[in-house]
Design a protein around this nucleic acid. Sequence first.
DNA 1: TGAAATGTTGGGGCG
DNA 2: ACGCCCCAACATTTC
Length: 477
Amino acid sequence: MTPSVLVWFREDLRLADHPALHAAASAGRPLVCVYVLDEESEGLRPLGGAARWWLCQSLRALDASLATLGQRLVLRRGAAADVIPALAHECGASAAFWNRRYDRAGMAIDDKVIARLRKTGLSGGTFPGGLLAEPRHIMNKAGEPMKVFTPFWKKLLALGAPRRPRSAPASLPAPQPVASDELDAWALAPRRLEWAGGLRQSWVPGEAAARKRLAAFLDNINGYAGSRDRPAEPATSRLSPSLRFGELSPNDVYYAVRFAEDSGRASSKDVEKFLDELGWREFSYYLLHHCPDLATKNFQPRFDDFPWRDDANDLRAWQQGLTGYPLVDAGMRQLWQTGWMHNRVRMVAASFLVKHLLINWRLGEQWFWDTLVDADPANNAASWQWVAGSGADASPFFRIFNPVLQGEKFDPHGAYVRQWVPELARLPDRFIHEPWAATQLELADSGIVLGKTYPAPIVDHQTARRRALAALKHIAG
DNA sequence: TGAAATGTTGGGGCG
DNA sequence: ACGCCCCAACATTTC
């Protein structure tokens, strides 16, 4: 019997531009496509709730696309270093292929899998597929990892054109029948039904839907550079969860945007601005690769002794969107209801937790990890550290967002606030970002009783700002 | 990928 | 007519 080839899907739940799948398909041998739910291996961070929901839907979608090619997705559960070699033997495979990952725990597992495969005469083939550039290829003159975004991104782009994406295989070799777990038995969907309901209303996971979102974004990219910061406008790509789970490869996105530019559909300004965001994703994975503890350890050690406040009430108010600052609350509620928050608001809300409340960025990182559908081990950790000031190329400690000014600047008519904080919806524009500045009469006209129907600010901006500056100046460097 | 404090300037009201 | 003051408006510095 012809030995089969095993393709191990991980954070690349797609058929297009999937180098490992492409290589396996070209071998012309029976194919086994597998996904392993690994909740046992040392050091792997368990997915948060919203991401588990996305994963479940995306696996279903991937299985359906494989089915159109006569294939199916085999589901297995357990420590990957056991499961993959065992499955390879079970189905008589001679090789297992996968696309690389870049976190330390994941790479250690992959090394172990390769070692075990080799021990019994099988081979493992690994491919680049998740990043525009391999992290080890970008170093400064001293041979050290780079620490500043702009030179990093310039260097990456100067390496030459990124790998060209391939389209999905038109056909796949016949499957090798293998037993599979039932997806429903994994119970990935959240227990709270209404939470899953909000996610389902907001998103369609899977490669096909991701490609539709990419196309819709390109149709709408005109003016992106300016409108991307206004959370009430549908200007951002909303591709983050798809990139997180690899429903699209960054190469696919990169070239789609470049093509829009070359064909005159998109201005260079808008394109550069958007590709910068893809660049930040690269930079985050790059940092995680060279600094594997990014989610728990300060990138800048001088933050190690910072006296964070331990205040469960303030943390809860922030999580629930009850800080009394409309823009922050709107963001936190959008997050809870849809599993996603607009980028501009993420910065303001995160800054509020860290700087106004002086709560440890790790607690914010953890909350986002649990609630974001795009929660990503690299982006989430790097971005929280960036906001906190402890990260690479971080926001300086004295940069403290004023949630009122940010609201007035980026949500001038309060459309975003009105959508997510409906109890403020009737406030006039001039008070929508600072309801406490309205008189009792004006509040009453809008049906608001401050402290009852909507909270008074849990901290005074001026006071909190000065407190943060005083606390942070000790570690300024 | 800020905001506040502080400094400077210039037009206009006014004595 | 002139100087003085006020204070936007803008620029610079500081956190």
